[in-house]
Nucleic acid binder design. Structure first.
Lengths: 160, 160
DNA sequence: GGAAGATTGTTGTTGACGACAACAATTGAT
DNA sequence: ATCAATTGTTGTCGTCAACAACAATCTTCC
């Protein structure tokens, strides 16, 4: 029964192998990076869960969305716009093309590059993804509050 | 010179292999996850860059901070508190112990668990890390604005 | 017009990371 | 005393960012 346990803690209490809760974060509070990491983890997990039925992950959704909004875009342009490696986009497109959501059409003006388009199937699928993504977004609003979500979007608008 | 290029785009313009800028995001605007991902990427890169001289990454910093604030904590408790896998913490601690920042002391009350403590060297090192981390935090404030940073911290406080 | 340099898609490697499963040692519960 | 749970550890898998290299192609510049 815990005789003579540890000493003072800079922040609060401190105990050996306790329940795990009630542990001081000290300087970590006040670091945006830590909070953002935890939030990012939560938000991605919810997105994946909410769109599990259609088996679409956040990056795949973002790729299809950008292609849908800008048909004919090259891989380089998509990668640059979304901030993902063009090397990674190759595999992403391989997968999306296999599922007949996207097609790589050889560019008429540049034989190196591909013009990316959604297939007919891809377009109707994306419409469904969008509905599920909106549901996910409602989860976010429930979690942090409607106004807070909007404020967050505004604060981070410069990074999009 | 670009004869007969592509057609309309749901959002804005659209061009083949252009510069990459000026591409519509469509539904992606309004998705918190996307903005958060971009921001997280930026903030981690800046953290790593700012603390490159001492070769400390965000996770290592968070582990040392929590141990410093709660000496004697078990690995399980640290992992749970920071939301990292206990399997992953093993390697993190291996590295930090190798550099003589942290020590695993066998718990007197539970022979399965280790009581984690900062070494003397770890404590002075952490003080320096904290100064550099504060500098990083100033970069964040410069990037998104002092008030916005504080608002962000408040909005995401529930995730820490 | 042709050589030199840049760009595009592709393949591969590396390392950080989250998730999960298994295991031995130990503790707690019944 | 036995059975279930916990702790640290090892290992695997899949995702992801970051780089480097390469062939094909385009652009630039002479």
């Amino acid at each position: 029964m815990a005789i003579r346990r540890r000493a003072r803690a800079t922040n609060g209490r401190a105990s050996g192998g306790d329940t795990g809760d009630d542990v001081g974060l000290d300087a970590l509070v006040g670091h945006a990076g830590y909070a953002v990491r935890r939030f990012q983890l939560w938000i991605f997990q919810d997105f994946i869960k909410t769109l599990a039925a259609v088996d679409i992950r956040p990056t795949q959704y973002s790729v299809m969305t950008v292609i849908g909004a800008n048909p004919g875009l090259s891989q380089m342009a998509v990668a640059k716009r979304l901030g993902i490696e063009r090397a990674r986009l190759v595999h992403l497109l391989d997968s999306l093309e296999e599922r007949d959501f996207v097609s790589r059409i050889p560019s008429a003006t540049d034989r190196r590059s591909h013009a990316l388009h959604l297939t007919a199937r891809g377009r109707t699928a994306l419409a469904q993804f969008r509905r599920l993504a909106a549901e996910h977004e409602r989860h976010v609003a429930e979690k942090i509050g409607k106004e807070n979500r909007e404020q967050l979007l505004q604060i981070l608008a410069g990074f999009t």
